[in-house]
Design a protein around this nucleic acid. Structure first.
Length: 97
DNA sequence: ATTTTAGTACGTCATTTAGC
DNA sequence: GCTAAATGACGTACTAAAAT
C-alpha cells in the first residue's frame, strides 16, 4: 500500500515553551503532541470511512435486491403476455380459416 | 479427513462527487 | 479551490460446498 506523506516536523523555534504554547495553532506543538494529533485524526478518518463503506455496501445490496425483484416480476409478466398472445393467435387462426 | 474452490463481508487507499 | 462523504478497486479472512 502506498505510504502516506511524511509529516514534516516544524523547525525548533528556540522560543520559551510558554510563548510557543500561547500562540498555538497545531503547527507549534511538541513533536509528541503533533504525532498524537496526526494519529488521532487518522484513526478518526479511518473510522468514518469504515462506517461509510459499510453503509455504501448496504445500499448497493439493497439496490441489487430491488433489481432482482423487478426482474422476477418482469419475467412473470412476460410469460403471461406470451401466453395471451398465443391464445389470441389460436382464436384468430380459427376465425380466419 | 484434507485440500481446493467459490462466494461473501470487511478494511483500507485512491479517486470522484457534492456542498460550501 | 477546499473539505467531507461516497464510491471503486484491491487485498485479506472466513466459511460452506465440492473434489481429492
Amino acid at each position: 500500500m502506498a505510504v502516506i506523506g511524511e509529516e514534516t516536523e516544524p523547525a525548533a523555534t528556540g522560543l520559551p515553551q510558554s510563548v510557543v504554547m500561547a500562540s498555538t495553532p497545531a503547527s507549534l506543538q511538541s513533536p509528541q503532541q503533533l504525532a498524537e494529533e496526526v494519529s488521532r485524526k487518522r484513526e478518526l478518518r479511518l473510522m468514518k470511512n469504515r462506517k461509510a463503506a459499510k453503509e455504501c455496501r448496504r445500499r448497493k445490496r439493497e439496490y441489487v435486491r430491488c433489481l432482482e425483484t423487478r426482474l422476477t416480476m418482469l419475467e412473470v409478466q412476460n410469460k403471461k403476455l406470451i401466453d395471451e398472445l398465443n391464445y389470441l393467435k389460436e382464436i384468430y387462426s380459427g376465425i380466419s380459416s
